[in-house]
Write a protein that binds this DNA or RNA. Structure first.
Length: 425
DNA sequence: CCTCCACCGGAAAGCCGGGTCA
DNA sequence: TGACCCGGCTTTCCGGTGGAGG
């Protein structure tokens, strides 16, 4: 007992030491989760129209009739998922009060991304044990039908990011959209959510017409609407007086420039707050927002670089070496020759200049480099390239790639000898 | 005004891994 | 199981070109 107490005491001491600082600096956040996009608020500003439309389409569910299938469109961060989850929850609540059986089942097709898994997932929710692999799809479909039809009820299946599923074939949708004719007691309707307006072109016409009996469009938010959303969340997330003058307005304005994405706006506010917190501030200022913009941009670049194909990484590394040796504007030919020597060093196949030319265009598109085609008269026509990102973080990210281990050694060689020519092979 | 550099960028075909179908 | 197809990546081939220098 004594031992236990003692032990407990030690743990507490360590706990205090390590976390004390972190604990005492939470003077900014009341609740951090409110700013995450997984959070479903119970107020959705500026989505009344969509909520009403959804509700009026779904209301037959409460009368034991089949609601129309719905397709929901809108860019990312326009509140599609939040709105549908919100309405779904309300529908279920009312149905319980009215003693009508009504289920809303949400699934995200980016995670559950094959025909089989969608069906297996639905079966599972209704208490059927379907192995995650193995059964013929038809059998799973039969199982789903039987499971749903066990009771007199309305089942609403929400397929988020439905376009991801369609790319792998629309059989499931075809089956699900005509499932009602095979059910005796229950009713099924489908809500598809997509941010790709054109995805319907890939659909079988029959699926298309049955799926899009109703359509709801979520337009992007404008700056004022974003401000309201941010204000509402900020009130929940922060203590009074934490948010400084103009912070919300700035976040809203910046996100509105980028297609009215509420998710971006919330991220911006959250990161701003985290920066303020790290600086031991008690107030979020416009300066913090500006820093947050930079941080988010930098994080994005790092992520892009990390997911680059190996060849592009080597190419980019070569460009970095050029820049570091004082040449900050260079041509395709120069980039290519250093790329070749790096490939030999790393033991990678050397691609043709034609291909590298395309990779350079890709890097340009991604905003990692800046390149323009210029003519140097007698000395030919080429692209003039310059890096457009902070060097060190990008370099470190490239060196994280295990296939490029030998590059860091090469890098050290260059540092130690000023005479080593980077073009040598 | 012409030449000619050093590359651009389109077209087409080959290669390869993965998936489908009989 | 093998024949076949598909899409992404890469190579091969090649016509095209803005402008400094002659």
């Amino acid at each position: 007992m004594v031992k236990f107490l003692k032990y407990g005491g030690v743990v507490t001491m360590i706990f205090m030491n390590v976390f004390n600082k972190l604990l005492t600096t939470t003077s900014i956040f009341k609740s951090r989760d409110v700013l995450r996009h997984t959070y479903t608020p119970n107020q959705l500003p500026h989505r009344d129209e969509q909520i009403e439309a959804l509700a009026s389409i779904l209301v037959p569910a409460l009368k034991g009739e089949t609601p129309s299938n719905i397709l929901v469109y809108g860019k990312t961060g326009t509140g599609k998922t939040a709105t549908i989850k919100f309405v779904g929850k309300q529908l279920e609540e009312v149905s319980i009060k009215m003693d009508v059986k009504c289920h809303v089942h949400y699934l995200n097709c980016e995670v559950i991304d094959t025909q089989y898994r969608v069906l297996a997932n639905i079966a599972k929710v209704f208490g059927r044990n379907v192995p995650m692999t193995g059964w013929p799809t038809d059998q799973v479909y039969e199982e789903v039908k039987r499971a749903i039809d066990e009771e007199d009820r309305t089942v609403i299946i929400v397929l988020d990011e439905i376009d991801k599923l369609v790319k792998k074939g629309d059989e499931v949708l075809y089956n699900l959209s005509r499932i009602n004719s095979e059910l005796k007691r229950s009713r099924v309707s489908i809500i598809g959510i997509s941010n790709d307006l054109k995805f319907r072109n890939f659909l079988d016409p029959r699926v298309n017409s049955s799926l899009s009996e109703e359509e709801i469009v979520f337009p992007p938010y404008n700056a004022e609407q974003l401000r309201d959303i941010l204000q509402q969340r900020a009130d929940l997330a922060f203590y009074d007086g934490v948010v400084g003058e103009g912070v919300i307005d700035l976040c809203a304005a910046l996100a509105a420039q980028e297609h009215g994405d509420a998710r971006k706006a919330l991220d911006l506010l959250r990161v701003s707050a985290e920066i303020a917190e790290k600086e031991n501030g008690t107030k979020i200022t416009v300066e913090h927002v500006k820093k947050a913009v930079k941080k988010i941009e930098a994080d994005h670049v790092i992520e892009v670089v990390r997911t680059l194909p190996t060849q592009s990484k080597v190419l980019l590394f070569g460009m970095i070496l050029l820049t570091e040796s004082g040449i900050n504007k260079f041509t395709t030919g120069e980039a290519y020759s250093i790329y070749k020597s790096l490939c030999r060093r790393v033991g990678l196949d050397i691609l043709t200049q034609r291909r590298i030319s395309d990779l350079i265009s890709e890097l340009d598109m991604l905003g990692i480099i800046n390149s323009i085609v210029i003519s140097k008269g007698r000395y030919g026509r080429t692209r003039e390239i310059k890096l457009d990102v902070p060097i060190n973080p990008v370099k470190n990210t490239i060196l994280e790639d295990y296939r490029l281990e030998s590059l860091s050694e090469f890098e050290r060689q260059i540092r130690s000898s000023s005479t080593l020519n980077i073009f040598d092979s």
